[in-house]
């Protein structure tokens, strides 16, 4: 999932305090799972904003809504009419959702309430960790299912740097050295010999922005153009 982290209340308040009305819009997919921008978090933020505006002596109409996903156009249908009653959307989605919000509801303002952090997993309740950098060139098969691009602080694909200490990263003793993890995993798989594979040079050509992926099968079918007769 995409993991998001709510901005500080102060940052959020600063970005909406001059508005007359704002619709707090949650996203029911990734950020709901990581408890940053789902229906419940919308309720919490809206309650905070209502109390704060009252205490600050300003009148801001605060609305609440959550849609299934903010990264698919059709889900916005459910709130399109409601959104018209507000000056801006305070989107609790990831960066993609915030942008789609601005695009689908144009010219309405779409303000982010979260910082989008990474693509990751739930390691424990309330504890999310990055696993993928969306590099567009997956090499996990060669590295025992541990991503050197993501888990290694330097994204090294040819072995560890000299900074690995006690199995931890030079960046922080809190972080595991990706290469020690890779070594231990491959050893369990009796595949240590795979580490001797020829050296790899990373290909960043797929990381040009903005990325796009098209699957012809799912494109809207069109009548084939008849050649002019």
């Amino acid at each position: 999932m995409i993991v998001g982290e709510r901005k500080t209340f102060e940052q959020i308040w600063d970005s909406i305090k001059d508005l007359k009305s704002v619709l707090v819009l949650g996203c029911g997919t990734c950020v709901a799972v990581c408890q940053a921008g789902g229906e419940k978090e919308v309720g919490l933020l809206a309650a905070e904003l209502r109390m704060k505006s009252q205490l600050a002596g300003v009148t801001i109409k605060i609305g609440e809504a959550t849609i299934e996903r903010q990264c698919d156009r059709e889900f916005f249908d459910a709130i399109k009419d409601k959104a018209k009653e507000y000056e801006a959307i305070l989107s609790m989605a990831c960066g993609a959702g915030v942008q789609y919000c601005a695009e689908v509801l144009e010219p309405m303002r779409s303000i982010p309430a979260l910082d989008t952090r990474f693509i990751g997993v739930t390691e424990a309740q309330g504890n999310w960790a990055e696993r993928c950098r969306a590099c567009g060139n997956c090499v996990l098969a060669d590295y025992g299912g541990i991503c050197p691009m993501t888990i290694c602080a330097k994204s090294l694909v040819n072995g560890p740097c000299g900074g690995s200490k006690n199995g931890k990263c030079e960046a922080s003793q809190e972080k595991d050295c990706a290469w020690v993890l890779i070594y231990n995993r491959l050893k369990k798989q009796n595949r240590l010999v795979d580490l001797n594979k020829v050296l790899t040079v990373k290909d960043y050509s797929k990381q040009t922005h903005p990325g796009r992926y098209i699957n012809e099968v799912y494109l809207k079918p069109r009548m084939e153009e008849k050649s002019a007769q």
């Binding site: 919490l44 109390m51 704060k52 205490l55 600050a56």
Partner: peptide
């Protein structure tokens, strides 16, 4: 924490 943020 949230109450403190809003000023209660």
């Amino acid at each position: 924490k949230l109450l403190k943020e809003v000023g209660i």
